[in-house]
Nucleic acid binder design. Structure first.
Lengths: 64, 64
DNA sequence: ACCTCTATATATAAACA
DNA sequence: TTGTTTATATATAGAGG
């Protein structure tokens, strides 16, 4: 089977694979953003638009 | 020695450790943001303020 | 502040349920 | 599509330079 875990750094051509990758990596990215804010007392804002145009966002809030 | 690689999800009390952690995790986060944009054809904006108030930013740009 | 090392933890690609 | 599995890749904590 194909080697797992590794990826070339370029646009994923297959639409379905790209959508699946997007969902998984988006989750990971938001988690990392949250951890950076909490662990390091930083303020973080993250905006992501999917290729389909859907918006996902996160903002740490010290003042809320 | 203490166990490596693991971390509790709360503010790091030691100032120096927190700054070191911040630098490392900030690098990782920006890399992940870039990869998401490239691999998945997404638009990503990321803003981070360090505890010292310094700004770090990234924005993918499909239209630039 | 910034590097290297490396053990360990975490993320994740592909397959499949 | 949404989740699980599992092999592999990547991130990173802590120590040291």
């Amino acid at each position: 089977m194909a080697r797992r875990g590794r990826v070339e750094l370029r646009r994923i051509e297959d639409r379905t694979s790209r959508q699946v990758r997007f969902s998984k990596r988006r989750s990971g990215l938001f988690k990392k953003a949250f951890e950076l804010a909490v662990l390091c007392d930083a303020e973080v804002a993250l905006l992501v638009f999917s290729p389909a145009g859907r918006l996902y966002e996160y903002a740490s809030s010290r003042c809320a």
